[in-house]
Design a protein around this nucleic acid. Structure first.
Lengths: 188, 188, 188, 188
DNA sequence: GATGAATGAGTATTCATTCAT
DNA sequence: AATGAATGAATACTCATTCAT
């Protein structure tokens, strides 16, 4: 993929896209994104072939960032429940404290522009999290359910919880904890 | 006196919209929907003021149908778990056997065109289901969590499960059952 | 850096608009104007925000051109009557020898798309002419009538005369002269 | 032309058209006119073949009414100047006291929808007025100018004066008188 | 004749992408 | 490589007119 042109410009476009998508949705003109990034509209297309291409890169990158934050400094010496709890709270914390990234990501997930390859890459990024989940449910009631299904259920719970945390910030921590308990009951 | 507005035409447009949205998304031209419905371009607008108006009616109607099917012939004499189980399987069955409706609904939920009023109406339609959920969690671990949050978590599980059932029809029943057990563990 | 906005293209659009409006009226499609100008559909909108914007610029520009021609090389050393006569004949000459501009202008004057600002600008352009008129009626019978009213009457006479000159070119000069005499009797 | 259907409905449509054109212009939908007239939109087309047909009838009728009022109860025993003055003030009075008719007429005059035949009919209606004008200028400075030209100049003065009378009602009478004096100076 | 639903041609404006400078 | 003007396909909605009832 050979580092193209200026990495700065490229990431400026990415950040701008996040802000614009968060506020205006995926239908926002590329020209708007370019202007927000301080670049000409033509320039956007030297960094990304098409609008959809930009969206795909953004999707993968956001998913990766989310997963990385969730798994950051995992207390590997602690028991699995504590590791999961830590991962869970890091995940939701990232989402609630980066609302624009979260909102952009939410739109991208359901977009038809995201290719199967990108979805696959998104899953890859979640591999660590899923691994943790796998250990969690090892002896639990869902031990025979396809792991990808369990992972999808977990993600669904996370997304819903994030919505409530953002919507009702005063009780964000309680929502986060309640949802984790629910998840744990579900799988472990 | 004059040709009366025909309920048939109206529902032909609705059905066409479901099919077209399922296959082409919300960005599909109104002309395409009209043609699929076998009516003229302009006729669509004698039945719906705007494209968004059509979307809103469609959303509310689909949500209502879904809820009605889910609650249909509930075994009121059985215990609450059996009632929930029945509701759950009816719900998921409807979604998996009406994949176009399901897909259209999934797009509509996240559309900016859907007004708060329609979202409200959608919630109203779910009232019976939520009532059932309320009784289910009465003495359960989530008894103190806001009911709307629990309901949202349930919906998230349902949607995810539906995806897996459609994707892997051979094991649809198992997915359905596994998810219900998970839900029950979560709330009861 | 990039291809600069071209004054040529802009005026090509303006000229095309004059021709098209003259022959098809203000209802003519912007696409027709663009084609006549030899530019793309979309290009018209990089030079003018809206169709109405184009119309307003056109109106002001035509009015200004008309006034400029009328006042061009005024024989300042001659008496006021001769100055007025010169102005009058230049005015009507411009209109009759630029029938498309004249016709376009006639449509634009009565268009709802022309903003008060543009009408104001149009009046500004006529200021020199009105000044001449003011001196002409200084000691005449209309000395106490509001100047703007007298000016409007003069314009009405001019427009009507132009129509007859175009309609009956063989006697254009006579019409022009007869109308000027009439005007002079009216005001001086 | 055989009195068609109900004369009441027909004139209801005409009156409605006057009001609607005055307020919305010639671009107003026929459906709006029909509704204002209390008729179905389809009905409008049993009384007038096309929208343009309605406009033409309206034009001729308004012009005729205007001319009739102007010539009503002319003091035939008085001298020609007094007859002209009376006609003039009746004319302008009609216009200023029927602003909707006046506004509609003003739009219709410049409309492309008005056929040469209708314009001709409009002129016919003005015949009496023109006759009066002819006698007025009999020995005046414009005695050799084509009568139709003089008539057009007079109409132009009238229209302009009406505008000022409506715009500045407090001085309407003065404007009316000043313009008549100007006209008289012009022709007699 | 009256009604108003059905028709479908017509149009300003937007925007992803290309390309001249 | 950067710029931003040029392109032209795409689309919701309107409205005169027709026609089924």
């Amino acid at each position: 993929m050979a580092r193209p042109r200026s990495e700065d410009r490229r990431s400026a476009i990415m950040s701008a896209a996040i802000r614009i998508i968060a506020s205006q949705g995926l239908g926002a003109p590329t020209a708007t994104i370019a202007k927000e990034a301080g670049v000409s509209n033509g320039s956007l297309f030297t960094y990304f072939d098409t609008k959809a291409d930009l969206f795909n890169h953004l999707y993968v990158e956001l998913k990766a960032e989310m997963a990385a934050v969730a798994m950051d400094r995992l207390p590997v010496e602690s028991d699995i429940r504590q590791q999961m709890a830590r991962m869970w709270s890091q995940w939701l914390l990232w989402a609630t404290s980066s609302p624009e990234k979260r909102r952009a990501l939410a739109q991208l997930v359901v977009s038809d522009d995201i290719t199967p390859e990108s979805h696959q890459a998104g899953k890859q990024a979640m591999a660590g999290i899923v691994k943790l989940l796998e250990r969690s449910r090892e002896n639990g009631p869902m031990r025979d359910v396809p792991l990808s299904f369990v992972a999808a259920l977990m993600s669904a719970l996370a997304d819903t919880t994030i919505d409530f945390m953002i919507q009702d910030p005063a009780n964000a921590d309680q929502h986060c904890a309640a949802a984790f308990d629910a998840l744990w009951r579900m799988v472990a």
